[in-house]
Write a protein that binds this DNA or RNA. Structure first.
Lengths: 346, 346
DNA sequence: ATCCCGTGTGGGAACGATGTCACACGCCCT
DNA sequence: AGGGCGTGTGACATCGTTCCCACACGGGAT
């Protein structure tokens, strides 16, 4: 005696196109034509098929369809950290645009880890997604996906500009504007808190900072440039060190919302008054910046639009795989709030 | 002369298991066994196959595999609004847990719209996902998905308790704790800002509020209970109306982070001092609450854990489809900050 | 010498949908 | 009457993978 295994004991099988065909008294081919609208189907037959499909609750199997057609209607979205409102908002924009264009979105949070990133990339290849939007940590993903013939759009930062599409914001201009704003107020000792300078975002923002200082005839002080990691605790600690030490800066430019939060907390803990004692301006406007007191001036990027634009670009790329690659730059604007003022008189 | 159409002109085809088989000089069956580890494969053959696969950059086609096996390794996650940090965090938790368990996550933002929700549900059925985690807007999704034999876990709120699994927080207890906290401080006029009371979250929190009032022998004043929509602007407007009017409450309990933001802004605009003039406590701790001044007391839920737990529950359900459904309740705790104090002396 | 069994391997039929191809039918035109 | 055409339908191969089954080979027991 052998154990008999039934495919799915008890539970009734999902209806397939064959069930619909039998219910409507036609062949599978006819059902396919009637439902997809490609090819002939007499109107009464079409009607019968539609009714049968609805009655059975038939939903075409995307797997089977994709397997046959060799192209899927889903896109992958890889972001660094959903807990950061920046990425969450970006994902939200991507989601809306994907839905609007009839794509299903497969999302993975790569947690800033290279391993998770390549794991996710492999999963997307396995899924045969039509394309991928990624906030890359290295050039590896783009290279890997491109090698598999999958269109990629890099968003926020770029590692493979030239060979893949990109959607970014005016990082250099934004940073320059923010820093210039401080310079114009009379600040000469302006600190910069920056993340990885080997990312295009970090590099560009750093350059913008330098440009603004140069334009104001201010010498760069290496001590005032802090390259911090990607978490609040670290930047808070580094800010505490700097602000407690001698020769404290009169203003800080924090190059992203996480760094800004760390600096903000450090300022609060030291009992410094903003903007009387110190001015603060951030890159990347986060919700809290308009709620705290005083409110924080920030270079605002249209994050939602960033995600939406990336998916739009991706879908264009999917339609035209051989067109030249394009980098789209979205404008940013400085929102001047209460955290910036002339430096304290000495 | 007819137009000849080549399958994919120019671009080289993705390697299939057949290519690997030829490269390794074995049959497809053997490759399958060697790669999946199911069934016999001599170690030297296995080696050869693995090398060939790596050289070709072979990645198994999930579509084909799923089609054959009739069970996929991806789960759907449906959230209301990724721009709300609550849902973003929940999604982040779900993402990590999914990854850990070897599932790919298909995420859709349902934008609080019933249409988007059912559209997304249908897409998930078409994708043959192994299960779905949803923050439901009605019982429709759960019903629909269950009818297609897809396991569902409702998270945050429940519409189909009893028939589907749920993962929620102690809403009633949390709301009672928050309100009692105000009562104990001496408040008698405590306003409640609440979202839809036909959602379990809203209903439970409302009940918790009532219980705390009853325990303090305080009569409920309908004028102090505001059922507001799901956006900051609306709750701000309603709060302005209430706080400007006569008989202003001495404390407000805002039942979610969005409502709390509206109330917070209204309080600021009216120039009221917290907590001297008015106390505020919120359900759902958002990042800004610990950054503003004064900081806002809040009932904190482990949102990340909520998402992670939901996916864990889902994966257990997938393994044991016929077990009784379970509702998991996560504990919450009141984080007492600076926004609560005894009412002003009259 | 024959049988049997354990270890490996390959053939081939699925899975569900699509689309090409062949063909059936009725009509009009020659 | 027969050819041609337009309309509509069904049979069948196919996509890439899995896995059941058949079978080959060699060694040990009878």
């Amino acid at each position: 005696m052998t154990m008999e295994r039934h495919p799915s004991p008890g539970r009734s099988r999902r209806p397939t196109i064959k069930d619909v065909a039998e219910a409507a008294g036609v062949s599978r081919s006819t059902v396919s034509r009637a439902l997809t609208g490609r090819g002939y189907a007499a109107s009464d037959v079409r009607e019968r098929v539609l009714r049968a499909a609805a009655e059975l609750g038939y939903v075409p199997d995307v797997m089977a369809r994709t397997l046959k057609q060799q192209v899927s209607r889903s896109v992958g979205v890889l972001v660094s950290d959903l807990r950061n409102p920046f990425y969450a908002e970006l994902a939200a924009g991507a989601s809306r645009e994907a839905r609007e264009r009839g794509y299903t979105m497969v999302l993975a949070d790569t947690s800033l880890s290279a391993e998770a990133e390549s794991e996710a990339a492999e999963a997307l290849v396995a899924l045969r997604v039509a394309g991928v939007v990624v906030t890359p940590n290295s050039s590896a993903v783009s290279t890997y996906l491109s090698a598999h013939g999958i269109p990629v759009v890099e968003v926020d930062r770029q590692f493979a500009a030239g060979s893949t599409d990109g959607v970014v914001v005016g990082n250099r201009v934004g940073a320059r504007t923010a820093t210039s704003h401080l310079v114009e107020l009379g600040h000469r000792r302006i600190a910069l808190f920056i993340d990885e300078t080997d990312w295009t975002t970090g590099y560009e923002r750093y350059q913008g900072y330098l440009e603004a200082l140069a334009a104001g005839d201010i010498k760069v002080e290496p001590d005032l440039v802090v390259s911090s990691g990607w978490d609040v605790a670290d930047s808070r600690r580094r800010a505490l060190d700097m602000l407690r030490g001698p020769g404290r800066p009169t203003a800080v430019f924090a190059a992203n919302n996480v760094l800004a939060e760390g600096v903000w907390r450090a300022i609060g803990e030291l009992g410094l008054r903003v903007p009387a004692d110190i001015s603060l301006v951030a890159f990347d406007d986060a919700p809290w910046m308009s709620m705290v007191s005083p409110t924080v001036s920030a270079v605002s990027q249209n994050t939602y639009g960033l995600g939406a634009t990336a998916v739009r670009r991706l879908s264009e790329r999917i339609e035209m795989p051989d067109a030249d690659s394009v980098t789209t730059v979205l404008n940013v604007r400085l929102i001047s709030r209460e955290s910036t003022a002339p430096p304290p008189a000495i």
